[in-house]
């Protein structure tokens, strides 16, 4: 985005902290720039945390950004804007997962599938790309491992920032990341 503010400065040149401050004072252009800057990452995170359900991810990001707009006036910059936004989205994703109810399934779905009926990883690899393979592997990870891995390896947050997003400690994040990497390596081994 290359929006010019009424003052003539290029909005895209402003730091996150300045954009957050201006948004808190009612500057809609500044908030739009924040959403433009971080929206793709927030949505990317939400989709992967909600097992690829785009509508649920859209709702989570919508709710998080609405809360961000309402509460930015009280944002004092104790954490980075990026970390704060991820925390809002992570909380919404967690709430969405808790709201999910068990769905009744047809007995046929529970019938054991013969081994030879499963698609061989090589076959699937041909049909999908590496990112799709990663998405499948991520779905198999436990929630905290998945969140820690995405925030570290994809979004480049520090251990302390991840701990803040997930409401835990850096030590726990370190452990979750270690397990996530090991689990993903095992899964991705099949996709070589």
């Amino acid at each position: 985005m290359d929006v010019l503010s009424p003052g003539g400065e290029r909005v895209a040149q402003r730091s996150d902290a300045v954009l957050a401050r201006r948004s808190g004072l009612g500057d809609r252009v500044a908030f739009a720039e924040l959403v433009d800057r971080h929206g793709p990452a927030l949505y990317r995170y939400a989709v992967r945390m909600l097992d690829g359900e785009h509508h649920a991810a859209e709702d989570a990001v919508q709710e998080a950004l609405t809360k961000a707009w309402v509460h930015l006036g009280a944002f004092r910059g104790e954490s980075s804007v990026k970390t704060w936004l991820f925390r809002l989205v992570a909380n919404e994703c967690l709430s969405a997962r808790r709201r999910r109810r068990p769905r009744p399934v047809d007995d046929a779905v529970l019938t054991a599938i013969p081994d030879d009926a499963r698609a061989a990883p090589e076959t699937v690899t041909v049909a999908t790309d590496l990112r799709a393979a990663l998405d499948v592997a991520l779905v198999e990870l436990p929630w905290r491992q998945r969140a820690s891995w995405i925030l570290r390896e994809v979004e480049s947050l520090s251990y302390a920032q991840i701990a803040e997003v997930l409401g835990t400690s850096s030590t726990v994040v370190r452990g979750q990341l270690h397990r996530a990497r090991a689990n993903l390596a095992v899964t991705m081994e099949q996709w070589r």
């Binding site: 990317r44 790309d129 590496l130 990112r131 393979a133 990663l134 390896e153 994809v154 990497r181 993903l184 390596a185 991705m188 996709w191 070589r192």
Partner: peptide, 9 residues
Amino acid sequence: RLREAADDL
């Protein structure tokens, strides 16, 4: 491969 996938994502 994992790093490549993360970069791609």
